[in-house]
């Protein structure tokens, strides 16, 4: 079995007295599209944020393409990494947020080239060319010089996806990418995500869009109360769930 892009082993995380993750383990392989479903508070978003180290885990380990996240191992001791080293590790995993988080003081194009130019130190002219291609890919070539405030939610989220792609990550984490959108705008974002999946990008998607999951995901994971309840091929989990809790959740969502 080849090495997974992301390997999560026994990760626990508490916020004060609230235990958000109670020992979660999973693998994501290259090219896979994995969808995580579950109720609010089930720990889905916390899991994503642990993977790209926006949040530090309490116990367990996360491996990014074979590299231990957040620590350097020396014998039987673990040394926390510096801020710079963690920032470098984050380059492997780009994130698309529920509320887009585009930089409002920059145009769409500037948002996309910011990472490659400032962090990867690439040549600006090269990056601009690539950025325009990305804008084309997400269907917003005409909006290169628009500011986020003048764009619809769906357009902003597509720019956000382009911004993530510009960093050429190994994996893109999606944190409920369509939950904040008006219903008529959801489709355009899902369309971009489907195209991404078809092109072979590794994606870990937290979502309520079960239709999307059924259509695009290789695997679906159902989380509840900080743990993984059921995990398997999309079709099995969504059509023939084995756990009672999964069944309860799905029937509540689908009515």
């Amino acid at each position: 079995m080849d090495r997974p892009i992301v390997a999560v082993r026994g990760v626990e995380k508490s916020f004060g007295t609230f235990r958000a993750l109670k020992g979660v383990s999973l693998d994501v392989h290259a090219g896979e599209v994995v969808c995580i479903i579950g109720a609010s508070g089930s720990g889905k978003t916390t899991l994503l944020r642990c993977i790209n180290q926006l949040v530090a885990i309490d116990r367990g380990a996360i491996w990014l393409d074979g590299e231990l996240a957040g620590f350097r191992r020396s014998g039987d001791k673990l040394y926390p990494l510096t801020e710079q080293e963690i920032a470098r590790q984050r380059l492997k995993t780009a994130m698309v947020f529920q509320r887009f988080n585009l930089f409002p003081h920059m145009t769409a194009l500037e948002n996309i080239i910011e990472g490659p130019v400032q962090v990867l130190k690439r040549k600006r002219s090269e990056v601009i060319e690539e950025a325009r291609a990305l804008l084309e890919r997400v269907g917003l070539a005409a909006k290169a010089d628009a500011y986020p405030a003048s764009l619809s939610g769906g357009q902003q989220q597509r720019i956000a996806i382009a911004r993530a792609l510009a960093m050429q990550p190994m994996l893109i984490l999606f944190d409920e990418p369509t939950s904040a959108l008006d219903p008529e705008l959801v489709g355009e974002v899902l369309a971009v995500m489907k195209e991404l999946a078809r092109s072979g990008m590794t994606m870990l998607v937290v979502t309520h869009e079960l239709g999307f999951a059924r259509e695009v995901a290789d695997r679906v994971i159902f989380m509840d109360h900080g743990g993984i309840v059921e995990s398997g091929p999309a079709d099995s989990v969504l059509s023939r769930p084995q756990e009672a809790r999964t069944r309860a959740f799905l029937s509540a969502v689908l009515t």
Partner: peptide, 12 residues
């Protein structure tokens, strides 16, 4: 969210 987005593209 702005801090988070900045960190996510690898900024210190």
């Amino acid at each position: 969210g702005q801090y988070e987005a900045a960190k996510s593209i690898g900024m210190t």
